[in-house]
């Protein structure tokens, strides 16, 4: 547990100094919302119809920026090697990086989310809490799969481009489940979201477990 918190704490200190990760995710997320607003302004579509998709496009692409940044920091000066020399298992190292990636994504998302509500003229009621809850579950899945994939893509020549190519096909279940659950909450139907929440949780558990076991291969020289 101690090394895990050490990794998260270290990432927070670096982020407080460089302010690169959260600010870029935040800016990108809001830009996506604004572009969607312009793109669909004249369509006359109900805000709650395109809203969920808009929100998760913003979240999942912003997450990719954060993941790229998080790994660039470990690759710079070969810092990852320093982590590998420390007396902790490869799996623990993975969990540590998942925890800090998750934390940064959530901070950015919880600022983007109110902006989303304001831009779409939604009132801050129970729906806000519901969608915040789904964001936590969905983001856990995205960071679970994204942390290991960003480690893989960091080994290629064009790492920034490679990550979305690897990440997006694998996160399709998260996107589908999160968009559906968000949409049901937003439309205030009798939400039948338990199945979607199960998929989100199941995805996170499966990927956390598998990645924990195979992370060694992703970092080994």
């Amino acid at each position: 547990m101690k090394p895990l918190t050490a990794i998260v704490f270290k990432d927070i200190v670096i982020e407080m100094r460089s302010k690169e990760s959260i600010s870029s995710m935040l800016m990108f997320g809001i830009l996506v919302l604004v572009i969607f607003m312009f793109a669909f302004e004249s369509s006359g579509l109900e805000k709650t119809v395109i809203g969920p998709g808009e929100l998760w496009v913003a979240f999942s692409f912003a997450a990719i920026l954060g993941l790229n940044r998080s790994l660039a920091m470990e690759i710079d000066n070969d810092c990852l090697q320093g982590l590998l020399l420390a007396p902790l298992g490869r799996g623990e190292l993975y969990l540590g990086k998942v925890a800090s990636n998750f934390a940064f994504m959530i901070i950015a998302e919880f600022i983007v989310l109110p902006v989303f509500f304001i831009l779409n003229n939604l009132s801050f009621d129970q729906r806000f809490i519901g969608i915040a809850g789904i964001s936590i579950l969905g983001t856990l899945g995205i960071s679970a799969v994204g942390t290991i994939l960003s480690t893989i893509s960091a080994n290629t020549r064009m790492k920034e481009v490679m990550l979305p190519i690897l990440q997006i096909p694998l996160s399709v279940p998260v996107i589908i489940a999160a968009v559906e659950a968000t949409s049901q909450i937003l439309n205030n139907e009798k939400p039948e979201i338990s199945a979607w929440l199960t998929i989100l949780a199941g995805f996170s558990i499966v990927y956390l477990t598998v990645s924990y076991l195979v992370f060694e291969f992703a970092v080994e020289e």
């Binding site: 920091m73 000066n77 070969d78 007396p87």
Partner: peptide
């Protein structure tokens, strides 16, 4: 090795403190 594995955004004390925590 010729790479030092220290974080450029942290100062020496923070770097060493981080590694000290990793090693417990």
């Amino acid at each position: 090795s010729h790479n030092t594995y220290v974080y450029r955004d942290l100062n020496p004390v923070e770097n060493l403190r981080f590694f000290a925590r990793l090693y417990g």
